[in-house]
Structure formats: C-alpha cells, structure tokens
Design a protein around this nucleic acid. Sequence first.
DNA 1: ATTAGTGCAAAGTATTTGCAAGAAA
DNA 2: TTTCTTGCAAATACTTTGCACTAAT
Lengths: 144, 144
Amino acid sequence: MTEQNAKDNFRSYLATQGLKSTRQRDIILDEFLRAGAHLSTEELYLRLRGQHPHIGYATVHRTLKLFAECGIAEPCHFGDGQTRYESSAGEEHHDHLICTDCGAIVEFENPQIEALQESVAIQHGFRIERHRLELYGRCRDCQK
Amino acid sequence: MTEQNAKDNFRSYLATQGLKSTRQRDIILDEFLRAGAHLSTEELYLRLRGQHPHIGYATVHRTLKLFAECGIAEPCHFGDGQTRYESSAGEEHHDHLICTDCGAIVEFENPQIEALQESVAIQHGFRIERHRLELYGRCRDCQK
DNA sequence: ATTAGTGCAAAGTATTTGCAAGAAA
DNA sequence: TTTCTTGCAAATACTTTGCACTAAT
C-alpha cells in the first residue's frame, strides 16, 4: 500500500461509513505517514503539537483507532505498556526484530515462515486473519 | 521444566538474590502452577481470594513479576490491555493461536518456524533471546 | 439544517509505589 | 535484630468517554 493508497483508502472508508473528512484527520494522517515508525498516541500527539497546538490528544487517539479500523495502521504491543501504531503504507506485511538493550526495531519478512504459520493454523482448524511475530534479542552493536 | 523444577528454580532464585521465601509466595506459586493457563494479575488474585482472602493484589502483582524475573513465567500481551503470565513449567516453548471471536487460546510448537527465525536473526546480526508468535483468526467452531 | 467531530476535562482501567506493621533470616 | 515482605491506600500511566461547541455535509 502506497501513501497515496492509504489516503484514498481512508477517504473511501470515511465516505462509506458516513463519517466526515476533517482538517484534523488530514493533518494527523499526513504526520502519521511521514513519521513512518511505530508511534504511540502520545508520540504522535507530541510531534503534532509544535505545528498544530490546537489538535487535542483525544482526537489523535480516536483518529489512530480509525486508521486501525480501516486497515491503514496496525496496533502493536511491544510490552512497554503502550499501544503503538504502525503504518501499513508503502510496504508488505512484515515482522519485527527488537533489541532488548537499545530498543532498536528492525523489520523483516520471510515468506517461508508465513507459509509454515498457515499450515500450523490449518492443522488446528484455524483460519488466520493476522499474526504477530516478534524476535527479541541483542542487535549487532549491543552484543559488544 | 516440571512443576517441581519451577519451585526449585524459584527457591534458588530467592536465595541467590538475598530475597526471602514467604508463605504468600508459596501459595501464589502453587495456585499459579495449578491454574496452568494465561492468567492476568487480577484473575490469579481472584482465584486466591476464596481460600486466601488475606493475600493482597499488590503481593500477587509483585510475585508474578518475580516469577518472570526468574524465568518460571512469561509475560504475554494479547492486545486486550492486560498483561498475562504464562507458566513455563511442564512444557517446552510454544506459541499461540488465538480465536478473535471466542477468545480461545491454543498452544502449538513448530521447530521449523523456530529454525527459520534463528536464520532471520543471524542475517540481521541479532542474537535472539526469546520470541513471541501469535496467530489470530477464527477457530473451527467460530467459522460456522 | 442536520449530523458528525473536536477539545477539554473527567472518568475508567491496569499497573505501580510509599509506608507502617509484620515475618523471615 | 536486621532486612525483606506484606497489605493497604494512594499515585501513576495510559486509554477512553461525556458534553458543549464547532465544522462538514
């Protein structure tokens, strides 16, 4: 999904749900796509605060949930007690390597693993909708 | 790790850290091992409440963190905003299939996936300490 | 006009902590 | 005794919501 696709998806989601397109939503989506990282509500709110001090925390929160509903963002829980949202724009599905020392997050994708997951699910009668794979360890630098 | 191993591990962890073995910790560990599920602090607290109304929520919370520190429990985040702890006793490492409809949790293990994870980590210069794999979808019953 | 969205403050959850009293070493 | 633990209540942290006002359709 490209950035433009994300914007289009969002617009049509709003339209089909009878929701409204607002200035705030546009600004929040722009900043969210530009950041391109794994942002918590708070982090996105703080990034916006400089240029757009009028946008409230609650609006950022509600807008991120909206992004998740329409599939342009994925909620992540990395165990630090915060919900982060990751953009689904500009890339295929991927998983995460997380350094337990410096917190670095590296994305990867591996079709073989995906295929094995599918077969595991079938063995147990499940139909997978989504998955989450996180590898925690030490990155190259932090092994020194 | 067997139940007895878990208890032994816990005892030696306490000893080496200069911590104390207490009646509450024994009771909480027993109940935690007996439950054998993915318990939140609250759920474990409520289970204990009947037989041991004198044990406080904070003690359960602190004891579960202690279990995690010494490796006999694993914290899990399934996205419902609660931290759950899973016993590492009596079984090898495994991952989870989670039904998004009824909430059923099925455990599985797959050495091929584990091996592929390892090779992905090596490609990125990481040394894995632990991982988390969760497949979300609909179980057999909920697909009807 | 009508309906949905915003921003604020307040409420709701889950988690964590300070501290005086109690228990283990 | 000395140090750690407990249980309570209070504090935090994060998320969510009620409502009067504003903006989009």
